[in-house]
Simulated scan of single mutants.
Amino acid sequence: MPSNNTTDPTAEWKNTCHPYVPGLEPSYGYVPSLAAGIVFCTLFGLSMVAHTFQFTWKRTWWCSVFAVGCLVEVLGWAGRTWSSQCPYNGNAFLMQISTLIIAPTFFTAGVYVLLGRLIAILGRSSSMLSPTLYLWIFCTCDVLSLVIQAVGGGMASIASNNGSDTKPGTDTMVAGILFQLGSITIFVFFAVDFIRRTMKQHVLHTMSRTVVPLLVSMVLSITCIYIRSIYRTIELLQGWKGFLITHEGYFIALDGAMMVLAVSVFNFIHPGCFLPQNETVGSSRDSVDKEIPTEARV
């Protein structure tokens, strides 16, 4: 826009590919790393291909959320790779901020469904909530979080490109991340209760296999997502000129690396391979327990 050109020398480069000019900082506050962009595009791309093969092979269609999340991550890191060559391009900036802010929502959805599956296998007594309630409550929260963050990301990136106030969009993004953080915290409470109950009931080992590897992968994944959510909250609260958001190393370590671990762990411990098939160990145990007097149970 002509009105912006007088105050922002980079305004006319928003739709072009102009190389970095020392002293004229891009919206990032730095020039994104080309190497990091290529590495994370490759890692998430490989995980996406692996997840697609795995959920197709095992017919665990719900695991497609992991592949979709990886695709969104690839788009985001492709935007950052684009920005490494065209640091002032507004489309590249919009592309990466709108996708990377919402990608983890697909991973949390997968973890929520996984716990519901484990409850269905190990029995209703292993959880305070039924598997159906888990899906309705936490997946609904996931969708709401995704929408809020996507809207906020779009508002903030458009405002940044136009040189206007980014605070409304940033506040919306923070609200979405805090909402997600709150829902994850509540989920962790129920997940800990699930683990406590299954250990007490000695049902972690089914007739054919143990579900311990899945529990470990679930804990690792949700921990990585939790760390990332805390980082992004602090980053955005500091503002677009804050310390964290203008130092790429933190983003690479606390967002990119955390998300690679959160989703790739399920490539190695895939639910389709580790979930017991056609077993309802817990439910059969529940029915047996009803027939045995309390004082006779071990």
Rank of each mutant, 00 (worst) to 15 (best):
192 V>E: 03
37 G>D: 15
4 N>Q: 12
76 G>F: 00
162 N>V: 04
195 I>Q: 13
296 A>E: 09
194 F>G: 00
202 H>Y: 07
22 P>C: 08
115 L>H: 07
183 S>Y: 06
35 A>I: 07
47 S>F: 10
89 N>E: 11
55 F>Q: 01
37 G>R: 10
137 I>N: 12
220 L>Q: 03
95 M>T: 12
110 G>K: 00
202 H>G: 00
170 T>H: 12
255 D>T: 04
29 G>P: 10
182 G>F: 02
183 S>P: 05
36 A>K: 07
242 G>Y: 09
279 E>L: 11
143 V>Y: 13
207 M>F: 00
189 F>C: 12
220 L>G: 01
11 A>M: 03
40 F>Q: 03
179 F>S: 05
88 Y>T: 01
263 V>G: 03
53 F>H: 15
167 K>V: 04
234 I>T: 02
48 M>N: 10
58 K>I: 11
14 K>M: 14
243 F>N: 12
14 K>V: 15
11 A>N: 00
229 S>F: 12
204 L>Q: 11
255 D>K: 05
233 T>I: 11
262 A>C: 05
283 S>F: 01
252 I>G: 04
36 A>W: 06
252 I>N: 00
176 G>N: 04
135 L>F: 06
31 V>L: 03
161 N>K: 13
169 G>R: 08
237 L>V: 05
173 M>D: 06
128 M>H: 10
255 D>Q: 10
292 I>V: 14
60 T>Q: 08
85 Q>G: 14
291 E>K: 15
154 G>R: 01
249 G>C: 07
40 F>A: 01
2 P>A: 05
226 Y>Q: 12
5 N>G: 10
267 N>D: 09
168 P>F: 03
40 F>S: 01
221 S>R: 03
45 G>S: 10
